[in-house]
Nucleic acid binder design. Structure first.
Lengths: 165, 165
DNA sequence: TATTGTTATACTCTATAACTATA
DNA sequence: TATAGTTATAGAGTATAACAATA
């Protein structure tokens, strides 16, 4: 497994197209900023690591998200996908163009509403996902390996509440 | 405060109150994947919200990170900045070019090692940061507003462990 | 009129790698 | 030889906005 990646002449984790991470710890009155900094940093580092692993399959993290979303609900519209991925419908066009060009996803016109495209995994897409997912899940489990199940439940509950504020 | 964000001609749910984004919940044996999905989603949503607020100051989240990092340690080298932001030194050149062009950061040659640049906030940069930071911190506090201090400590502790796995 | 998807534009960020000038 | 920074390239993601087709 790869712990670090040779980048340039410097050791760094990787992942394309995504943001760097925050760094500001000095809020005098509360833990909120500290928690956010740590959250963002942990998230970024995991994104880099997972993104790098997925790159071996020719997938970006965003593209993996598209495929995994379709895996759960084939036949959704581009608009629905946009809402789930928290991006605009304009961005979805580009995303689907790319995974479509790779042959993993296809648009099918909705017979009842001619404005709508419904999205489906191709056989190749399903196959790719079933090839990529196990390692991906294993990487995630490794990252969380030091937590007890109780702690994982706790984390999940806290993050759900944060996500729905 | 903004509850929804006007994106395009679509209302993008800045807080859809429900569904999980990235996207794979079916790991039969553990909570790890679920926790990661929730973590990534919460992080993404907060990034979007905070990034949008910072844009009012002409700052991207990454640029804010640069400024905030220098606020903590002016005089660091580009290489050191790269390590703190978890990006390559090549990427740092672009980052500093941009915040430098805006007049917020300057490179000064190290007198003892002529390969090295040391980075400093300009007065404008310091002023911008002191203008942008309070609202930024307030947004963060608002996002974490539903947690008790005890829960915040808990979260921080859990995320620190995750970050250093 | 409202909605779905498309197109166009501009910018930011990231990855990779070769290059320079120093040390 | 090794290190700090630069340059070059390519691509991905995002934000914004106007547009066409359809409802």
């Amino acid at each position: 497994m790869l712990d670090r990646l040779q980048v340039n002449d410097m050791d760094l984790p990787t992942n394309p197209g995504r943001r760097t991470l925050p760094v500001l710890n000095e809020d005098p009155r509360g833990w909120e900023v500290k928690v956010w900094v740590t959250l963002a940093r942990a998230s970024t580092r995991l994104e880099r690591r997972l993104g790098h692993a997925l790159a071996a399959h020719g997938l970006s993290l965003s593209q993996f998200d598209v495929l995994a979303t379709l895996w759960h609900g084939e036949g959704i519209t581009q608009q629905e996908l946009a809402e789930r991925l928290l991006v605009t419908k304009g961005n979805v066009v580009g995303l689907i163009d790319r995974v479509g060009a790779a042959g993993w996803v296809e648009r099918r016109p909705d017979p009842d509403d001619r404005r709508v495209n419904r999205l489906y995994l191709t056989d190749a897409g399903r196959e790719l996902l079933s090839r990529a997912f196990p390692g991906h899940a294993a990487d995630i489990r490794e990252a969380f390996g030091r937590f007890t199940e109780d702690e994982l439940r706790q984390m999940h509950q806290l993050l759900e509440r944060l996500d729905t504020y």
